[in-house]
């Protein structure tokens, strides 16, 4: 994985974990504290979530009348039109936003992978949106899209266009949520892919050039194949991230107008804290969890095995 720019040779040979002291002492005391925390705030909540998903469980403080319903919540979800709506919006969000982000990130990485004055500053500044707080991003976009005083309408009005209530229109609001995400996250893809490009040894490209390979050939036969693992990593990271999108949309549109931007997490939230149906919400949570684990395991197995991490350390 090309998180760190690899050097051609490892500076200190094969040091690190193949140590002769590996069998000395016990790792248990070192692992126990982390395990306890992970158990308390991750493993137990997951199991508990699954248990709750089998109950008709109202939110009210006293616990109310809990009733075991087995797979009832899941069955009800399948019959729930709003559930399918949120799933459709979620998938649409992923399938529209992420390809654009990858395309922009790849394009910019290829274009900016050359020396020009101020290049370093430009590459650093492009990354700033990635570090914009998600909720601040959501609110700023909400601000820019306001009908009377928002920046976008001010601009359009000056061109003579009619005033549009962007976030009051289902289609525009959904598009705005996607644009916000693309704006903020394509530089993230750019950052990963640029690091990957820089990691491609220059002599390979020079040799191809001397052998008469055109720039298109160099791109399709050398650069893209070598960059492929990085692209895949970026894609998986973005999918995992997009699956849990919540805060920026929540502050930008609150899921509205109507249900037009109620993505999966927003509907899960609404089930629990709007409709007070904790059991239904937990069923959705388990569904989302299963999908996320699937992608996370794929990513970890491909790119983040312990050996890869250790290798990164050695090549650092």
């Amino acid at each position: 994985m090309t998180f760190s720019r690899r050097r051609a040779t490892s500076p200190s040979g094969n040091v690190a974990s193949k140590s002769g002291t590996g069998g000395y002492g016990s790792p248990v005391p070192f692992l126990i504290p982390a395990f306890l925390i992970v158990f308390a705030v991750l493993i137990f909540p997951i199991v508990f979530s699954f248990v709750v998903s089998l109950f008709d469980w109202p939110l009210s403080a006293g616990g109310g009348a809990r009733r075991f319903v087995g797979a009832g919540n899941y069955v009800e979800l399948v019959k729930d039109k709003e559930f399918w709506n949120s799933l459709r919006l979620q998938l649409g969000f992923i399938f529209i936003a992420i390809p654009i982000e990858i395309a922009l990130g790849l394009g910019a990485a290829l274009l900016l992978n050359r020396e020009f004055r101020g290049g370093r500053v430009v590459r650093a500044l492009i990354l700033l949106p990635v570090f914009f707080l998600p909720i601040v991003s959501g609110m700023t976009w909400r601000f820019m899209l306001q009908p009377r005083y928002g920046a976008l309408n001010n601009f359009l009005l000056s061109l003579g266009a009619p005033e549009i209530t962007w976030l009051g229109d289902p289609t525009f609001a959904y598009a705005a949520v996607i644009v916000q995400d693309v704006w903020r996250m394509w530089p993230f893809v750019f950052m990963l892919l640029y690091a990957g490009l820089v990691g491609i040894p220059a002599d390979i490209l020079e040799a191809a050039e001397i052998d008469g390979a055109t720039s298109t050939k160099r791109l399709t036969k050398i650069i893209l194949p070598l960059l492929y693992p990085t692209i895949l990593t970026a894609l998986l990271l973005r999918i995992i991230d997009a699956l849990r999108v919540f805060s920026e949309v929540y502050v930008m549109t609150e899921g509205g107008p109507g249900m037009a931007t109620t993505l999966f997490s927003l509907y899960t939230h609404r089930q629990a804290f709007g409709y007070m149906k904790v059991g239904m919400s937990s069923a959705m949570a388990i569904f989302l969890l299963a999908i996320s684990i699937l992608f996370a395991v794929t990513l970890v197995r491909k790119n983040m095995s312990l050996e890869k991490l250790e290798e990164q350390g050695e090549n650092r």
Binding site: L42, I46, S49, R244, H269, S282, A285, L289, R301, L306
Partner: peptide, 17 residues
Amino acid sequence: YSFLVFRMLPQMSLVVS
């Protein structure tokens, strides 16, 4: 592996419980 996978779980899946 499991520590890494744990990092990537959606918060929405945990927050209700």
